[in-house]
Write a protein that binds this DNA or RNA. Structure first.
Lengths: 158, 158
DNA sequence: TTTCCGTTCATACTTTCGGGCGATTTTGGA
DNA sequence: TCCAAAATCGCCCGAAAGTATGAACGGAAA
């Protein structure tokens, strides 16, 4: 359950710990057998240092998260514009545009001002502004004229 | 001359070596003073291991080039295939729309702001505003979106 | 040459848009 | 029944759009 997840996420650290423990046991064992450190403490310590430096380097390499660099590749999609308009519901769903937003979009494309749209839909001007803002975001536009252009090319409006 | 270059290029490695040497001297000195390792070899070795692990990590972080993970993001660009557009010159003459005004109208329909249009046509913002106002009057519109709608229906723009 | 017209630009002002918050209420499904 | 998404509305502020008016300049037609 959780255990496996914890292990896999901290695999390197756990391996490091295990390695360290193992080494310590090995040293203890060596200590009992020979009296290495009596003669050559420097060599001994140097070896330890080297080994753990290596381990540290290995740890660092494994644990550092790579920087994510985003490369934007532009993909061109051609769209046929036909006079017999077929509403592209797929695109609407893909962009997450709601029914109400579509209504606002349609009226916007017909040249109505926000105030006029508000009047027509019996809601406040602020509401229309919110819908418009959401539309601009979803259509990746910063002006209503842009939004209209894009919506037309996506067959969201005639 | 060369020496300085060599030093700056291998700064981290040299620093590491110096640190190692220093530590070894320190240990030697400690060895002469006390008999630490007699009592607690594990602690001693553990400390060394920890220190050099840290050094290793530091070395690795300093020496290795930062990992970069490339993520390719596809950005879709929709391009409209306008098949058949026949410009209605008659209507343009009837409404008394000038060439320059038509240019502005086209850019407006493409979603450009007045400032952007001004930049593109190498004229001032005020000039574009004047053209726009004249267009609105000639097209009997009071907003750019309206003007665009009307112009499209009159086949002045695709 | 004089008179239009298109083009350019300016200043000053008002209105509309759009961004950036936050907030509450409806509502359609799990 | 409960939740998330949708819809609603508000406020503030700055940017953009649009209105009004005047003016200068050059080319083309009368």
């Amino acid at each position: 359950m959780e255990l496996r997840k914890i292990f896999s996420e901290n695999k390197h650290i756990l391996l490091y710990g295990a390695g360290l423990a193992l080494l310590l046991f090995l040293l203890k064992w060596l200590e009992l057998r020979f009296v290495i450190f009596d003669h050559a403490l420097e060599v001994y310590v140097g070896a330890i240092a080297l080994i753990f430096t290596g381990l540290g380097i290995w740890l660092a390499l494994k644990l550092t998260k790579p920087k994510v660099e985003r490369v934007v590749v532009e993909k061109e999609i051609y769209i046929e514009k036909s006079r017999d308009f077929v509403f592209n519901e797929t695109e609407m769903n893909r962009l997450g545009i709601s029914k109400r937003e579509l209504e606002v979009l349609q009226l916007m494309a017909q040249g109505f001002s926000n105030a006029e749209i508000a009047e027509r839909l019996f809601v406040s001007l602020n509401t229309i502004k919110t819908h418009a803002s959401n539309l601009f975001f979803k259509l990746d536009a910063s002006r209503r004229t842009q939004a209209i252009e894009k919506a037309k090319s996506l067959a969201l409006i005639p």
